[in-house]
Design a protein around this nucleic acid. Structure first.
Lengths: 355, 355
DNA sequence: CTGAAAGCGCTAACAC
DNA sequence: GTGTTAGCGCTTTCAG
């Protein structure tokens, strides 16, 4: 254990309060005193004990982020954005993974495990609408994702229906009418999953364009992994259903589909146009580059952190829960016929042979 | 602020010490007392304040992980493994990103920002051998990566040279002799970077196989991004240098190279065999699937956490620093001529049309 | 087996 | 402007 404030106070010949004032950049400290204190801090290598500060102030300066699996590009990119946003506000982020396990998700909410944090950003994967009441927890919580709506907490989500609709409309605009969907989930009690909402957007766009709905084109595919996207695409090709476009409900599925289409010798976008959802980094670098729905992930992260900070700072007020959806965008790339200039960042010497 | 131990003690009609004993599962508590305390805990919804506990015990139960950028697959997968390993030991992980910024990396070491953690796992990207002394910090630290050797801390790294050599040997075994390298760094003062070590392994393997070294085949490519791998490959193709295999110094470069080879109509592995390094998840799902060096990432994570925990628990002893490298493996996939069965995990109803 | 009391390092009243 | 002091909630001697 290092030196404490008392040590610094002794060396500087002042009281702990003064040391505290200096450390916390309190304005009204005489310049001479301040510099003596700073010298003592320097000499002793003093660093304030944040645990003690946390105990006193009731704040730790750390928030929790709980996601299913950080290996998934979407969550890695979300975590990145959230860590950045939190950092801007001087907060650290403790990352927890639930692994898509319901028990783990319940534990996260129970908060039995680690608290020592001021609040929680939670993106559940197994909890559903029926668990809504469990969100009424005794600590600041902001919900992410589409599993639960109308709960007692702030909720940052995306325009699933309208952005999916816009994606399909984009396919219609490039002349497609037989538009397959990859990533639907089987019908069941749940109807608020991302997949359900996005399929609903798909149908809206078809209706708007006067294109008849053909259930044969809507393929059940779960979980949303790359290999399953490829597999579903192979099955669709084999099924002999005619189609000239694919709307994959996330980019990972779309990337798998691109693979299967490539293997089958189907040209993208000439024979089949493809659009995904999420706009993960990799979409930019696929062959061909993948058009996608940008759901505003950076915004989502920023808003989520802002809301959480508000809740942490809120005293007794208890404002009613808010639901926020940032604007989305359609990113047009090669897979729907929009060639893009590639931006290649390179060191000066890149591309040369080694001397 | 929730109920405290004193509240529980009052309700249960015992002293705080007894409550503490129950909470900490101290053995010698009369069953009746214990159950009365537990009932009180339940009734009040008491949860121990970890900050207070941390202040008292000097432990927080949280470690820091500092990596350049969690969006990069390698680091996302490493973070996943580390979070799992830490979780098994009851530790939380606070993730920080340096963004490949030297100043940020120095801050991380200065520990000015967030401590409230028991130790640090640090994977620097900009610090180098000359910063070795900065690693002598007043908190438990375990170093990851290849930037600094011989420092005062425990260090978990990989068999860069011998595994790179094995990768090249694998290419030789499948009959290749004109083996290009993607991802070298320009010569400079530094010679301990991953790239340098892996190029050294490359040369060793060539020597062992009696293949002459041709500097035209070693391509400088930085940073190691997908687009740069593609770009470097295009330049190599354009340069007219003859080659029948590529050793990419990481998988991301290799995936970019696969793209460029595909565009150019070069068949992999028939015309050119490709092997990468890192064995990221995506290597499995590339077209064709990518052979790679598995550097033992899961092991690295587990060992790193173990070492850090040891250092945290060590009292005055101060064992000398250790350097550990787990075993590596060569994963043979399609890109070097080893077709693999695809394992597709699917929900039961996957692949069907929506009813 | 349980209770009383001290104190981890810091901040925030409240004095002076 | 600066010093004194009382806790934040918990663990831990030390008694009993």
């Amino acid at each position: 254990m290092g030196p404490t404030m008392h040590d610094v106070a002794r060396v500087a010949g002042v009281s702990v309060k003064t040391v505290s004032n200096v450390v916390n950049e309190y304005q009204h400290v005489k310049a001479g005193t301040r510099s003596r204190v700073l010298a003592a801090i320097d000499e002793l290598g003093y660093r304030p004990n944040l645990t003690a500060r946390g105990l006193r102030s009731g704040r730790t300066g750390v928030i929790r982020l709980a996601v299913p699996d950080i290996r998934q590009n979407y969550f890695a990119e979300l975590a990145d954005e959230i860590i950045r946003a939190a950092d801007r506000r001087g907060l650290g982020v403790l990352v927890q993974q639930t692994g898509g396990d319901r028990e783990r998700e319940l534990e996260i909410l129970a908060g039995r495990s680690l608290q020592m944090t001021d609040g929680l950003l939670f993106s559940p994967e197994r909890l559903g609408q029926e668990d809504r009441d469990l969100l009424d927890v005794p600590f600041p919580l902001v919900l992410l994702g589409e599993r639960i709506f109308g709960g007692p907490t702030d909720h940052v989500t995306m325009h699933n229906i309208s952005s999916a609709s816009a994606a399909v409309q984009h396919l219609v605009e490039v002349g497609r009418r037989r538009i397959a969907v990859l990533g639907a989930h089987p019908d069941g009690r749940e109807t608020l999953r991302s997949s359900d909402l996005r399929v609903r957007g798909y149908r809206q766009a078809l209706d708007a364009a006067g294109i008849p709905y053909d259930p044969d084109l809507v393929r059940v595919t779960a979980p949303w992994h790359r290999e399953n996207g490829a597999h579903a695409m192979r099955l669709l090709l084999r099924a002999g259903v005619e189609f000239d476009a694919v709307f994959a409900l996330n980019d990972t599925l779309a990337l798998g589909a691109l693979r299967a289409l490539g293997e089958a010798g189907v040209a993208v976008p000439e024979d089949v146009a493809v659009i995904g959802f999420d706009n993960i980094d990799e979409a930019h670098f696929a062959v061909p580059s993948l058009s996608s729905v940008d759901p505003g992930r950076a915004k989502i992260a920023g808003i989520a952190v802002d809301l959480l900070v508000e809740r942490i700072e809120e005293k007794g007020e208890r404002r009613p829960p808010r639901r926020i959806k940032p604007d989305f965008g359609i990113v047009r790339r090669e897979s729907t016929g929009f060639p893009q200039p590639r931006d290649v960042r390179l060191d000066d010497s890149s591309g040369t042979a080694l001397s």
